[in-house]
Simulated assay, not measured.
Amino acid sequence: MFKALIVEKDDDGKTSASVQEISEDRLPEGEVTVAVDYSTVNYKDGLCIGPGGGLVRNYPHVPGIDFAGTVEASDDERYKAGDKVVLTGWRVGEAHWGGYAQKARVKADWLVPLPGGLDARQAMAVGTAGFTAMLAVQALEDHGLAPGQGEVLVTGAAGGVGSVATAILAALGYEVAAVTGRPETEGYLKELGAARIVPREELAETSKRPLEAETWAGCVDAVGGAMLARLLGQMKYGASVSAVGLAGGAALPATVIPFLLRGVNLLGIDSVMQPYENRVRAWDRLAEVLPMDKLEGMIQPAVLSDLPGLGKDILKGQVKGRVVVDVNA
Rank of each mutant, 00 (worst) to 15 (best):
A170T: 11
I269Q: 03
V324L: 03
D66L: 10
G69I: 11
F259A: 01
G245N: 05
K44S: 09
L310C: 07
A81E: 15
T180K: 06
A217V: 03
A95W: 10
A239N: 05
A194Y: 10
G99S: 05
K84D: 02
D75G: 10
V280C: 13
E175L: 05
Y237S: 07
S74I: 13
R200Y: 05
L55D: 10
T255K: 11
P115C: 09
S23N: 09
R121E: 10
L231N: 07
L172E: 09
L304M: 05
A170Q: 06
I197A: 06
T155G: 10
L252I: 08
L111T: 06
Y79P: 11
A250C: 03
Q20G: 08
G64V: 01
V32F: 02
W216H: 01
R200Q: 07
V220S: 12
W97E: 12
G54R: 04
A129V: 04
G98Q: 01
K208Q: 12
V325P: 02
K236E: 12
D45T: 13
V264K: 01
V256N: 10
G218Y: 01
A125L: 04
E24W: 13
G317L: 04
D75A: 14
G181I: 14
L172P: 00
V152W: 00
P51Q: 14
A195W: 07
P258R: 02
G98I: 04
L260V: 14
E77C: 00
F131R: 03
T255A: 12
V289Q: 12
R26K: 15
A195N: 10
V272N: 15
K3M: 12
P210S: 10
Q318N: 13
G54C: 04
S242F: 06
A213F: 09
E205T: 14
D75I: 01
G245D: 06
N328P: 09
V56K: 00
A254Q: 09
K236F: 08
A247Q: 03
Y174F: 15
A329S: 15
D221K: 10
G309V: 08
G263S: 08
L211E: 13
V179C: 08
S163M: 03
N265M: 14
D25M: 03
L246N: 14
A123L: 11
L307W: 00
E202M: 11
G245Y: 06
V244S: 06
V106S: 02
M298F: 06
G98S: 03
S39K: 05
A68D: 02
D142N: 13
K103N: 03
V264M: 02
V241L: 02
Q122G: 08
Q138K: 03
V56P: 00
A222C: 15
V220K: 07
A108S: 11
T40P: 00
T15N: 08
T215G: 08
L189W: 07
V92E: 04
V319W: 00
K312S: 12
G249I: 06
S39L: 06
A165E: 11
D25S: 12
M124L: 15
A17H: 08
G156F: 05
M235P: 02
G82L: 07
L118D: 02
D11W: 12
L47M: 15
A136W: 02
L47V: 11
A178E: 05
E191L: 10
V19A: 05
A35I: 08
P51T: 13
